[in-house]
């Protein structure tokens, strides 16, 4: 089976859908001729022409706003925000418009848009190229929020997102665009080609939204993670020898609560990971869900390992990033507890 990087898988998903469905249009800052600053749309303008894939003015409110208008007309816009950190001018269009159009018009108008955006740190991008704003989307009713951790899922989830009839926020952890990253920043970069999940079938396939994936089966503790942190969790489990069950959530809303409940009932322990800041992060929602559904099965308090509650710093990037050592400590302390 062909192997793809995350970037190639994402590009292929758009390519497949642009070929299958002429309502699919792709646009954003630098996505046309140049193919995007991370190369996710490279070649699409050449292949499908400048009215199917084009550069936009530097205006995130404009990008999301026109996407909503196009979607209401009947197109399937896939908009790119150059960095998730720059989505804020478009946030009003996402929250007040895209997310609620179906509800407020009783289904007369809908906004089936996909808004793709690279997120997360690990590239010394400082506070404006490193953020993980997923919780700002999961808190909004009417949005679906997706965050893949590998090329196979990225392609299948993006195709599913484009086919989805509601607006989807598609977060792409940029640190794993070109290779899996387990948080050991001082080790040589590993390419995707050596990872089994870089095998992505050609052509059309989907990974349905709302389904988590089991990355590692285990009995001692459940680890809930998504995006880059899935790889960090795998490294921490391997290094500590803790028999962790690692669940890659893949879609945050709608959440696969069955997968979570099944696992925590089995292990009786739960560690939640995300790179985003802690307070009111998505981990708080996960923790509440686990408590509500599995309280009588828990043998230790739920633990969260997250970014600190500060803007993403530049020089202190690796002090900030919740790497494998912090995850390992949490795994061990949750095992000792109870």
């Amino acid at each position: 089976m062909p192997r793809r990087t995350m970037v190639e898988a994402i590009r292929d998903a758009m390519d497949v859908m642009m070929a299958r469905d002429d309502r699919v249009v792709v646009f954003g800052e630098d996505v046309g001729y140049f193919g995007g600053v991370f190369r996710c749309t490279e070649g699409l303008q050449r292949k499908y022409g400048p009215t199917r894939c084009f550069d936009t003015p530097i205006s995130e409110s404009g990008i999301v706003g026109v996407a909503v208008g196009m979607a209401a007309y009947g197109l399937r816009p896939v908009a790119e925000i150059q960095f998730a950190d720059y989505m804020y001018p478009g946030y009003d269009q996402i929250v007040s418009e895209a997310a609620r159009l179906r509800y407020r018009s009783a289904g007369e108008f809908t906004a089936p848009i996909v808004v793709r955006m690279p997120c997360g740190g690990g590239i010394f991008g400082g506070q404006t190229h490193s953020q993980s704003p997923e919780a700002l989307f999961t808190h909004v009713c009417g949005l679906k929020t997706v965050i893949p951790s590998n090329p196979y899922d990225a392609k299948g989830l993006l195709i599913a997102a484009i086919e989805e009839d509601d607006p989807v926020i598609f977060l792409e952890p940029k640190r794993i665009y070109n290779g899996p990253f387990d948080g050991h920043h001082d080790r040589p970069v590993v390419p995707w080609s050596r990872h089994p999940l870089s095998e992505t079938p050609d052509g059309y396939y989907t990974v349905p939204l709302g389904q988590a994936a089991l990355r590692r089966e285990g009995s001692a503790v459940t680890v809930l993670a998504y995006g880059t942190m899935v790889h960090v969790a795998e490294a921490a489990a391997a290094e500590t020898g803790v028999d962790a069950e690692i669940i890659d959530l893949r879609t945050l809303v709608p959440l696969d609560v069955d997968a979570i409940e099944r696992s925590v009932r089995k292990t009786g322990r739960c560690v939640i990971l995300h790179e985003a800041t802690r307070t009111s992060g998505f981990g708080a929602e996960l923790s509440a869900q686990v408590q509500e559904r599995c309280f009588y099965h828990l043998e230790a308090p739920i633990a969260r390992v997250t970014g600190w509650d500060t803007p993403y710093p530049h020089a202190q990037e690796w002090d900030y990033f919740p790497g494998p050592d912090r995850v390992a400590r949490a795994l061990q302390s949750v095992l000792e507890g109870g």
């Binding site: 991008g125 400082g126 506070q127 404006t128 190229h129 803007p311 710093p313 530049h314 020089a315 202190q316």
Partner: peptide, 12 residues
């Protein structure tokens, strides 16, 4: 000696 204490991206 960075007056911004390493927190901000270079040139900002």
């Amino acid at each position: 000696a960075d007056r911004l204490r390493g927190r901000q991206l270079p040139v900002l």
